[in-house]
Simulated assay, not measured.
Amino acid sequence: MITAKNIHKFYGDLEVLKGINLAIKKGEIVAIVGPSGAGKTTLLQLLGTLDKPSNSDTSEIKINHKNVLEFNDKNLSDFRNKHIGFIFQFHQLLPEFTALENVCIPAFIANKSKKEAEKEATELLNFLGLSDRLNHKPNELSGGEQQRVAVARALINHPDVIFADEPSGNLDSTAAKQLHELFFELRKKFNQTFVIVTHNRELADMADRELEMKDGKIIN
C-alpha cells in the first residue's frame, strides 16, 4: 500500500535521512519510534507528501501504486486532499469555526457539496462520541475532544492512509488511552491504515509493527 525506496534528506550539509526503505500494508497500524533527532518526523512528512526527498530523481514513494514524486504541485495537492489524512500533536483546528465546520473543510476543498460534507462530518463526529459537540468551537472542547475532531477531519475524505505525528503527545493519560483505542476501532470499522510517529510506549506496543529509527536509518 505504501512503499519507499532509497529516501535521503539533507538540510544543508546535514543528512537527516540516509537511504530509507520501507513497505506498509493496507490496514496496518505502524509505529515509528526512536530518539529525538532520529528523523522520524522528517520521514513522516516525506511519506505524507508534505516535503520531497533530496534525491527525488533516484528515490521512490508509492501510495496505492502511484509514485507521488512524479506528480506536479497541483496533482500532488489534489492527491493529498483525497487520499491522505493528517493528525498532529497540536490539533490545528481553526478557532473561529465549530467542530462541524472544521471537519467539513477538507471535504469542501474536494468539491463536496455543503449538504454532503455536513452529513458525512456529522456521522463521523457522532461515531467519535461528539454528537453533542458539533456546534462548539475548539476553545469550548477538552483536549481529548479537540483531538477527536482532528481525527474526524482527517477521515472526512476517506483517505487511504492517516499519518499521525505524536497524536497523543499533548493529552493526559486518560485521553491518550482513549485516542489510542480509537485508532484500532477505526482500523476495524474502515480498514484504515495508520503510520504513527510516537514516543508513547503504550501506543507503540499496541501497533502491529514498530519501525525503529536511529541517526536517519531504520534499524529494525
Rank of each mutant, 00 (worst) to 15 (best):
A4S: 01
K5P: 12
N6M: 02
I7Q: 01
H8A: 04
K9E: 03
L14D: 07
E15D: 08
L22C: 10
K25T: 09
K26G: 14
A31Y: 04
A38Y: 05
T41G: 06
L44R: 02
L46F: 06
L46E: 01
L50K: 07
P53T: 00
T58F: 01
L69Y: 03
E70Y: 08
F71L: 12
N75E: 15
R80E: 06
N81Q: 13
N81A: 07
K82R: 15
F88S: 09
Q92G: 14
P95W: 00
F97E: 07
E101G: 03
P106H: 10
A107T: 04
F108Y: 15
N111G: 02
K112S: 08
A117G: 00
E120C: 10
E120A: 11
A121Y: 03
L128E: 10
D132I: 12
L141S: 13
L141R: 07
G143D: 08
Q146D: 12
Q146V: 03
Q147Y: 11
V149T: 03
A150P: 05
L155G: 14
N157G: 01
P159G: 04
D160F: 14
D172Y: 01
S173M: 13
A175H: 01
A176G: 14
H180I: 15
H180C: 10
F183A: 03
R187A: 08
K188V: 06
K189C: 12
Q192N: 11
I196L: 12
R201P: 14
A204K: 08
D205S: 15
D215I: 06
G216K: 01
N220D: 08
